[in-house]
Nucleic acid binder design. Sequence first.
RNA 1: GUGGCCGUAGCUCAGCUGGUCAGAGCGCCGCGUUGUGGUCGCGGAUGUCGGGGGUUCGAAUCCCCUCGGUCACCCCA
Length: 428
Amino acid sequence: MARPRYQALKGTQDVLPPASARWEALLATYAATVERAGYGLVQSPMFEEIGVFQRESEGADAVRKEMYDFEDKGGQHIALRPEGTASVVRAFVQHHPLTPWKVWYATPAFRYENAQAGRFRQHHQVGLELLGTADPEADVEVVTIAAEFLHALGLRQVELQLNTMGTVDDRVRYVEVLQGWLRERVGDLDPEDQARVEVHPMRVLDSKRRATRAVTAEAPAIADHLSPESEAHFAAVVDGLSAVGIEPTMAPRLVRGFDYYTHTTFEFVPTLVDNAQATILGGGRYDGLVEELGGPPTPGIGFGSGIERLLIACDAEGVFPAPPTALDVFVVDVTGGAHARELTRELRAAGIRCDRAFDQRAMRAQMKAADRSGAPFAVIVGDQEVADGVATVRPLAEFGAEQTTVPRADLVAHVSALLTDLPSKDAP
RNA sequence: GUGGCCGUAGCUCAGCUGGUCAGAGCGCCGCGUUGUGGUCGCGGAUGUCGGGGGUUCGAAUCCCCUCGGUCACCCCA
């Protein structure tokens, strides 16, 4: 068939009802989880001056070559946010709120890359940031909340991978060790990875290529090259998690995409999803980022979680079904539509969810629409009802109730009572 | 940016050694029941067969280009 003139761009998608109901439910679950822990919503602009994301130290592909950037009419170099953290940190620096500052967000994120399973040009993240404390307890809280969130969605087959990047100094020393080790084995690496030994040695650890993995399985781990302070921090995090029953998988080769991470880094990976892009939630500590964006030295930690990937993981586990369509009543008016207008207004004002048909359709068609709407009751108004000043209430599903006729004045109360008595339809 | 696979009605797909090739199921609309949905029966609408070019008497079917989708690399949520 002919493709319409305009379509959603590559790597973007429309989320329509009823599928969008899962988004609503996910967002509600997330907000409830983090607000219970004292995090407040932060809304920041979806675009920023490009420097917010693309700082001199930043070598991540997501901001180096995948940025959606443009020059605006005033000549400013603008970029659509590729991730959530940098904007929040910029807002922190700009408004200097009291610390610890605990905020959460839900936002689209943009990266110019080719789409594949679990990867889009516009994807959506929920996340949180905790700024102003270097306490390993903060690391524990953030990871714990992440785990609670995933659990609340119904996800069970999820693995937590944990690593540490140490301090900047730790990392410099480690990279030197790692680079020297890799140089001796560069010939055994996958050709595609050989050049990276010089450019970005830690990325080699993260490679998925078989030959490279065989080599790096034996590579020195950063955990063995930490300063005593960093070691103590990491140990405290591991102990704290263990104390709340979270047993992470130590992942010495876990290298997160953004260069600003220090100390704790972590990812939650669904074990049942076989996409290459499976990580549903990732985060870590970023103790130098606030300073880099012009603020006072301030430690911070947070995570981001991809909604699209969360839903893929939920599907893989067969959990988190979309809630049923939320309608209580469908008004069928075969007198032209004016009564449907009045009744829906009345019912809605009383908090009853209802819909109606348009176009003066035949009763049969309106009843069909009522059935399809999922509402448990149809309220029918025809010439006879109008003449008698009543409305007919017809049950649409199998719960034994009889079709009844009630005075118009009693309709709302009658329907309310019926809905209250409804056999629980919330069972999954 | 690179590579594999794919692109026929709203959806899922059949047709593809070129010649009733424009189809099926589901869905949608109407009617049977001029005031009652879900079952059933009958009837109906919708496609420039992704787009463009080429080969041919003839192309949804073959070739080229292009666009789009999908999966993978890179990278990340």
